[in-house]
């Protein structure tokens, strides 16, 4: 099921702008492999879910997929064929704000070849360019 907040303080949010690169959430935390966003975007909850399912189906129980982003931004839309005005539209979906550098998925416990293929499949579900990253040896 697509994730979204259980409780919110305010239903509607201002859009804001995505500026700069990810200053946090840009390193692998628990996994050995992951995909990193190279472009900014609002990643909708259903897109996150599609990528998660694509990776999980390929791995078929080997290893574990960790979703490293959470859609906590409500996105509103005005219905079609509605006249201008009458205030802000109703929330349509939730999205995660992704900056270049954000790690979107991580995989742990899977073999290198399977993890890379699974992440490649997940990357195809993303609306942005992504790159594969792996853990560096500790300096």
């Amino acid at each position: 099921m697509a994730t979204q907040p259980k409780r919110v303080k305010w239903r509607k949010m201002q859009r804001g702008r995505i500026r700069g690169r990810a200053s946090r959430g840009n390193k692998l935390s628990v996994g050995e492999y992951g995909i990193q966003a190279l472009e900014p975007c609002w990643l909708a909850a259903r897109q996150i879910e599609a990528g998660r399912i694509a990776a999980n189906h390929y791995l078929a129980g080997e290893g574990r997929v960790i979703v490293a982003v959470f859609p906590d931004k409500s996105v509103t839309a005005t219905p079609a064929e509605t006249r201008m005005g009458k205030g802000k539209g109703e929330p349509e979906f939730y999205a995660a704000v992704v900056r270049p550098g954000t790690i979107i998925y991580e995989i742990k416990g899977a073999s290198e070849i399977n993890a890379k293929t699974a992440l490649n499949r997940a990357a195809h579900k993303m609306p942005i360019r992504c790159r594969l990253v792996h853990r560096r040896p500790k300096q």
Partner: peptide, 21 residues
Amino acid sequence: IPVIKGEEETAETFDMPERIG
């Protein structure tokens, strides 16, 4: 040994979250 959960169906409908307060 991972705990196998049934694959949850993706909800197409959008449920409004509860508002705090």
